[in-house]
Design a binder for these strands. Structure first.
Length: 271
DNA sequence: ATGCGGACCTGTTAGC
DNA sequence: TGCTAACAGGTCCGCA
């Protein structure tokens, strides 16, 4: 579920419900996530206020009085806000309770996600310290991609999915952005011109923004069980369209494995 | 430094 | 219909 648009939609959904509220209790039902949930979370967070809910890459950051919660949804994670007590379902691993007002409930079947606690600046946490630029920031442009790609032989698909290069481009939107920019996913990153990188950067922004808009519409009230904007799938040009005609030229969309992930592209429109 | 493959998990779907 | 295998939106880590 969670690519950057889903994470951003989640952030926007939960922020108004917990910002400024005081945590009353943290319940950890299963601490076996990607990294074990630190005991300090349940020990230190209760009694503190959440001051803001931000996002860096696909990490959600809950800034509290003496530290921050760092939360990642992995492949299958979701959070939702309950406004009344509900019996936990399978994989409801963590509750962060805000008195009677709200419960933030973290669910993650595959447990690739994480919920961590740091007393330091979360941006200096090892998981966040080396991350590349945010694709939706105003200063994100093709130049950065172009410069960091010189001499690199890695396929462009893998390159733009590398979080040290640019964050937030997951498997779906990597295929989509490359299609929109007309770039073959296997093309070596170092053999792409500045002009084409400018186009790619623009299309990355465009597709992510469009998906956020679609997600935002679907999940307006956030008591829904999973943060799945099932909606944007209608707008996908290549992802999941193996064998179907390209919407531009009619050629059959190809599916190949690149970097161990399924990749979708039009062999005619992408070079 | 770079690039590749494996690892972590469970649930759902595709195929025989 | 039922069993098994393949696959799934992420990303860290170790090795060559």
């Amino acid at each position: 579920m969670p690519e950057l648009p889903e994470v951003e939609t989640t952030r926007a959904g939960i922020a108004p419900q917990i910002t400024g509220r005081r945590v009353s209790k943290v319940i950890v039902r299963d601490r076996r996530l990607r990294w074990p949930v630190p005991p300090a979370l349940a020990r230190e967070l209760p009694g503190q206020r959440v001051h803001e809910v931000t996002r860096r890459a696909k990490y959600l950051l809950l800034k509290a009085d003496t530290g921050s919660v760092i939360l990642h949804l992995g492949m299958s994670g979701s959070v939702r806000i309950l406004t009344r007590s509900l019996a936990p379902l399978p994989h409801d691993h963590i509750d962060i309770r805000f008195g009677r007002a709200a419960i933030l409930r973290f669910n993650d079947p595959r447990r690739f996600g994480c919920v961590l606690w740091t007393r330091r600046d979360p941006f200096s946490h090892p998981l966040l310290a080396d991350l590349g630029p945010e694709p939706l920031s105003a200063d994100f442009a093709g130049e950065k991609l172009y410069e960091s790609s010189r001499g690199r032989k890695v396929a462009i698909k893998n390159f733009i999915m590398n979080a040290q290069v640019v964050v937030g481009v997951g498997n779906i939107y990597a295929s989509e952005a490359l299609y929109l920019a007309g770039i073959h996913p296997r093309r070596p990153a170092g053999r792409i011109s500045l002009a084409r990188f400018n186009e790619l950067a623009a299309q990355v922004q465009r597709v992510l923004r469009a998906a956020i808009r679609a997600g935002g519409t679907t999940l307006r009230d956030f008591t829904d069980s999973d943060g799945l904007p099932g909606y944007f799938s209608q707008s996908l040009k290549v992802y999941g369209r193996t064998g179907l005609p390209c919407k531009r030229c009619g050629e059959a969309i190809r599916q190949e494995v690149i970097g161990q992930r399924s990749t979708f592209f039009c062999p005619h429109c992408q070079r």
